[in-house]
């Protein structure tokens, strides 16, 4: 097992060294990635200057929801986000080189670029989380501590699975990159808001088709002991890992089918 993973360790190590070699450039990258979080959080802040609760959550609760989904998304983006560049590899023919090497295509693609600067966003999300959680008035017990950890990991797995689904579709639609963005970034955007504000049809879509509500909204209901909106009972908050597994089953199926569908240009 350790032997099988060694090539990836070496690849990732080289990416990390290459990015941290130019310190000032890396510092700029980190600062830039903090900017991305700022845009998202500014939105929540501006909305809460007009109202005090949204979809049953106060500002602290909404900030916690934002931070949890943001942390999950950025972890997923760090680990498999690079698969979104698949169209570039298809267009330039680099994918053929991946197919010739004795490593999995998916593994090679995911490790082709590990953008460490994305850790800047994860860190900013964690800071917001650290401020919002104590203010949100959670009544802690061991199960809730466990739930928050499971949520971050399983939420990241859901986003990662969605990214793979989005990338897999690119085997068929090389130009349709924005379809994938709609799924991944759209899913992440929907996950930042309480699903209770959505129209019931939209809520069903963002819960059971594109499972954004499972990433952090449903677990937040459990953490805060709030009842769920119609169609989303609170206990679903414990089911984030189940949803993550389902998403990955679809994602791996789509990826395999896509890779089988792919034909190189032969140049």
């Amino acid at each position: 097992m350790a032997d099988a993973l060694r090539p990836y360790r070496v690849i990732i190590g080289s990416r990390v060294r290459s990015q941290t070699a130019y310190r000032r450039s890396f510092a700029i990258d980190l600062a830039v990635s903090v900017g991305g979080t700022t845009i998202g959080f500014a939105e929540i802040y501006v909305i809460f200057t007009n109202i005090t609760t949204l979809g049953g959550l106060d500002f602290a609760g909404a900030a916690m929801l934002f931070a949890l989904s943001h942390v999950s998304f950025t972890i997923a983006d760090l680990v498999v986000g690079h698969v979104g560049n698949l169209p570039t590899y298809i267009r330039t023919g680099t994918l053929d080189a991946f197919l010739l090497r004795p490593l999995s295509v998916f593994g090679q693609l995911a490790t082709a670029d590990v953008t460490l600067r994305r850790l800047g966003r994860t860190a900013t999300g964690l800071v917001i989380l650290a401020v919002a959680v104590p203010l949100s008035g959670i009544v802690w017990d061991p199960a809730k501590v466990m739930l928050i950890v499971i949520t971050v990991v399983a939420g990241a797995a859901i986003f990662a699975g969605l990214m793979v689904c989005g990338a897999a579709v690119q085997f068929w639609l090389v130009e349709g990159g924005e379809f994938a963005s709609a799924v991944t970034y759209g899913g992440s955007y929907a996950a930042q808001y309480p699903a209770s504000v959505f129209h019931p049809m939209v809520r069903v879509f963002f819960s059971f088709v594109l499972p954004a509500a499972f990433v952090s909204y449903l677990p937040v209901l459990v953490l805060l002991d709030l009842p769920g909106p119609a169609g989303l009972p609170q206990w679903l908050g414990w089911c984030t890992p189940v949803m993550a597994v389902l998403v990955w089953v679809v994602a791996m199926g789509a990826w395999r089918a896509g890779l089988r569908h792919y034909t190189g240009t032969g140049s």
């Binding site: 349709g176 709609a182 808001y193």
Partner: peptide, 30 residues
Amino acid sequence: YRLAALAGAFANTVFGLIRANVTVAVVGVA
């Protein structure tokens, strides 16, 4: 690039759906 244009329109619509739902809810609460 027609397919790319269609994909872009789709993405704009998905985001519009989320934004419209959120802002309408804000008005409702207020």
